[in-house]
Design a protein around this nucleic acid. Structure first.
Lengths: 245, 245
DNA sequence: ACGGCAAAAAATGAATGCAAAATGGCTATC
DNA sequence: GATAGCCATTTTGCATTCATTTTTTGCCGT
């Protein structure tokens, strides 16, 4: 009564591929999904050493499939594997974060450019809808709702680019900075919030006109500003953490 | 007579990470490097099934580290893993290629933008040097030399972006389309070649002026044109006719 | 002869076992 | 009293073994 493999011949391509992540079947695939979520959601302290045995009994499997999953997570950049010294959650320096944000900005910028070539009026209408919804959250000072609508807008743009490889790469980078990204949105001061709304209106405008390179510019700058806000948020309140010796 | 592990404590981060790919130590790392090269260089026919045993004895190892390496290669998008049906070299449809080229274009476009923020005069001079060298190859109709100089120029721009995450992602995508990319350059008709030279001059010009978003646009369009040439070459490779309609 | 079915053979997926390396604690020494 | 070196324990890396699944092959029925 294992998970009876439902569909046959489904092409499996791991994280970086164009295809979908269909890992439900094999055990190591299941483990991969669960571990990835577990790490992305921050259940493991950064830099902490995680003995394989412990993970094994936590997940109820043997070490072989676990190690395969760990290798993949390392390839995705979520964890680090030190030779003979185990796996630990990747610790992102400020510089790392800046770099990752910039790559995200580049990918979204690309997504916008491509979207202008292929997006339908209906899709634009849907994004407008999200925009108004987001505006409502803005007016009500509803951070969480705002955050979600915002995220869905950006995802819609990426989806409109009609590029699976891009979508996958985007998802990968998004996962790597997810924790920070979330708190970055919460870090928004009123000032920055209003700015972001204006930027979003410019985005919509460029999208309506299918102005590819213009939208590309706006999106990059928009994400750049987000980056700045996020980094500031991290350096200010976060405290010289008690560096464990 | 295992590979005696030379250095200790070197942080290992697999393909998608910011860090370097230091896998020389562990066996599976060694295998990973060798297999990746082996696949990228096209030694395995596309879509062919490759029994693990066969690879094992070819590489002289057991299945465990091999399978770990395969998982990583799948995560990088170089191979496909079908459940219970083994690994095969990823077969790229025309659509896949278009997508991958577009992502490459986006990454280089980003690289150009970032490079404008950080590039030194010396680096620009070096790129100019490469440009003249490339121009020489162009005049002498030296395809191979042209190709190499061209590649080094693009790599220099990526390097000037000062972003390890970007560099790694770029290398990953470059590996995935390497075979096609090479032949794409050889596919250049005289016409396209001259165009490419002009585009490169525009690239240099924008770079000198540190005109970020302008350079971003030019680079994207440049790569887009390359994409078109490559796809054309693939769809009707046997057409020596210079006939224009 | 051809197509479908069943059993054998082979390949994959996962678990276990064993050797090498690292970690931690202890003692001996200065 | 602190530090360097040594030994026991833990942990990782890899090979081997076991269990399923797939693929092949041979057979039977139509």
């Amino acid at each position: 009564m294992k998970s009876t493999i439902p569909d046959s011949g489904v092409p499996i391509t791991l994280a970086a591929g164009n295809g979908a992540d269909r890992h439900e079947a094999s055990l190591h695939g299941e483990i991969l999904l669960r571990l990835r979520d577990y790490v992305v959601e921050g259940n493991i302290p950064e830099g902490a050493r995680i003995p394989e045995r412990q993970l094994c009994e936590m997940l109820g499997i043997s070490r072989t499939p676990l190690r395969e999953a760990l290798k993949v997570l390392a390839a995705e950049g979520l964890i680090e594997l030190l030779p003979n010294r185990g796996a630990r959650v990747r610790q992102l320096s400020q510089r790392d974060l800046e770099e990752l944000f910039d790559v995200m900005a580049g990918l979204e910028s690309l997504a916008g450019r491509l979207a202008c070539e292929a997006i339908s009026d209906a899709e634009i209408t849907a994004i407008e809808q999200l925009h108004y919804e987001m505006y409502g959250h803005y007016l009500h000072r509803d951070m969480h709702g705002y955050f979600q609508a915002n995220q869905r807008i950006h995802e819609s743009i990426v989806a409109a680019a009609r590029n699976e490889a891009l979508k996958t790469a985007y998802a990968n980078f998004a996962g790597r900075i997810r924790r920070v990204r979330y708190s970055a949105n919460f870090a928004r001061k009123r000032q920055r919030w209003a700015e972001a709304m204006r930027e979003h209106e410019a985005i919509l405008d460029a999208l309506r006109r299918r102005a590819g390179s213009e939208l590309s510019d706006i999106l990059f700058q928009h994400l750049r500003n987000k980056r700045t806000a996020a980094i500031e948020h991290l350096t200010e309140p976060q405290e010289p953490a008690p560096a464990s010796p």
